[in-house]
Amino acid sequence: MLAILREISVTCFFTSYLVVLVLELLRLAGRIPGRGLAVLVMMVVGLFTHVCYIWLRASAIDGADAGMLATWSDWSLLMALALAIFFFVFYLLRPDTIISFFFLPVVMGLIALSFAVGHLPPFTRTEAVEVWRNAHAVAMAVGSSAVLVGFLAGVMYLVQSWRLKRHRAGSSLRLPTLETLGRLNRRCLVISTIAVAIGLLAGVVMNLNRWGHVDWTDRGVLLSVLLLVWLLAAASVEFFYAPASRGRKAVYLTLASLGFLVLAMGGVLSTPHGQSGETPAVDSAVIESPDSNIRSDGERSL
Rank of each mutant, 00 (worst) to 15 (best):
7 E>I: 13
11 T>K: 15
15 T>D: 12
26 L>K: 00
28 L>A: 06
35 R>G: 03
36 G>A: 06
39 V>Q: 01
41 V>I: 14
42 M>Q: 05
44 V>Y: 02
45 V>S: 05
51 V>L: 11
52 C>F: 12
55 W>A: 14
57 R>T: 12
59 S>H: 05
62 D>C: 12
66 A>K: 10
72 W>I: 04
73 S>H: 04
76 S>W: 07
77 L>N: 07
89 V>G: 00
90 F>W: 08
90 F>R: 07
97 T>H: 07
99 I>S: 04
100 S>T: 09
100 S>F: 06
101 F>P: 01
104 L>K: 02
108 M>W: 04
112 A>D: 01
114 S>C: 11
120 L>D: 00
135 A>V: 15
136 H>K: 12
142 V>P: 11
153 A>D: 06
155 V>I: 15
159 V>E: 03
161 S>Q: 08
172 S>I: 14
180 T>G: 02
180 T>H: 13
183 R>A: 11
183 R>M: 12
187 R>I: 12
195 A>K: 08
196 V>A: 06
198 I>K: 02
202 A>G: 05
203 G>M: 06
206 M>K: 10
206 M>W: 04
210 R>W: 15
210 R>V: 04
216 W>R: 07
218 D>L: 09
218 D>A: 12
226 L>K: 03
226 L>H: 02
232 L>N: 02
233 A>F: 13
237 V>Y: 01
240 F>K: 05
240 F>S: 02
242 A>W: 09
245 S>N: 07
245 S>I: 08
249 K>I: 13
252 Y>L: 15
252 Y>H: 11
256 A>I: 15
256 A>P: 09
258 L>G: 02
260 F>W: 10
264 A>P: 14
264 A>N: 04
273 H>P: 03
276 S>F: 14
279 T>N: 08
284 S>I: 15
287 I>S: 01
295 R>T: 13
301 S>G: 00
